[in-house]
Design a binder for these strands. Sequence first.
DNA 1: AATTGACCGAATTGTTATTTTGGTCATTAT
DNA 2: ATAATGACCAAAATAACAATTCGGTCAATT
Lengths: 196, 196
Amino acid sequence: MAAERKPMDRRKQVLEAAARSFETFGYKATTMDQVAKLAGVGKGTIYTFFAHKEQLFEEIMSGMIRELRELADRTLRPELPFADNLMEVLHKLLDYREQHALAVKLAQEVRDIGTPMAREGLEKVERAVVTYISRHVNEASEKGEIKPCDPELTAFVMLKTYLALTAESHHLHMPLTKEEVLDYFRTYWMEGLAAR
Amino acid sequence: MAAERKPMDRRKQVLEAAARSFETFGYKATTMDQVAKLAGVGKGTIYTFFAHKEQLFEEIMSGMIRELRELADRTLRPELPFADNLMEVLHKLLDYREQHALAVKLAQEVRDIGTPMAREGLEKVERAVVTYISRHVNEASEKGEIKPCDPELTAFVMLKTYLALTAESHHLHMPLTKEEVLDYFRTYWMEGLAAR
DNA sequence: AATTGACCGAATTGTTATTTTGGTCATTAT
DNA sequence: ATAATGACCAAAATAACAATTCGGTCAATT
């Protein structure tokens, strides 16, 4: 009786255990037995909520996409200039380490063993982010705040810049601080390189 | 006697056959027997000129780096603005498809089977390009043509932009034309996104 | 009705046999 | 004599097969 567990939402238990496991071991090395154990739940129970491992993973990835979008939506001030909003969202994003841990682990897994599911998951996030940014680039472009440009392509290159400054900069430097990333992003994308 | 071969430079024959083979089959799937056959030369002959497969490959990669640098050096006009030189070199580079074929094949090989030698080769080219660009970014920065910035990091992000617009743009669009790549590169890096 | 874990077959991993390939060198051609 | 060659060898890659793991099910239990 002492170790009796409250009828806590089992679905949530599973989801959180799975998130921790994917983040720690990656997609492939996460086993359903492991998730069940971590969630303190029988393996069969997982399958009352999720049809299969892939669905469990997809649920977590859409959660990540949703949280990213909500963070951005919460931060955006439509009355402010595009540039200010961009920097502010970036700023918030750089504080938001949790999501990164899973994304980083999956990226590593794709590099090391090329797990297709991990690759697809990351591609989905990438597409969602590009779509989101491109909508706002498009609006800014229509308002005349920025030049006419292909919104999708511009969003795509922006994301690549972000990744180059965060995930990939260790090819050259030690990882940049948050302030440095913000500074360079502003220089490259808002002010331009040309001397004032 | 009819099929007698001129004392044509055997080293060159081997080098060219190897280049074709690496470009067509990648590093791993290129065999020394294959290269010998393509070069119309006994296998032993290859080893009079190159200590091993790796050296043969490295020779070809340094050739690629050297040709890229010579192309750029030939094009650069120190008296012209940084921006003009950048666009002009880019222009020439986009015409220079041959080098690309090998680089593209190697990139595919790294993605598909992760051949370490292919990865190292590409990284060497990347480092060489970043070093080259960063030297010129540094000069432009000292001349006050562009803002002060970390030259290496700036060169790195420029290269990533170039790759995003050429090699990776097919994630979104059909490959961009040479003119489109030039246009977007100018917009992003020289003029800036801000409405004029 | 909700939960469980022993159970199943497919897929993965470990192991051994077979083939391929980088590199050598005695022989041949010049 | 020197330059060139290709049969040859050990090591590495691959194929074939055995052993294990893991996603998913379901009869038994709570």
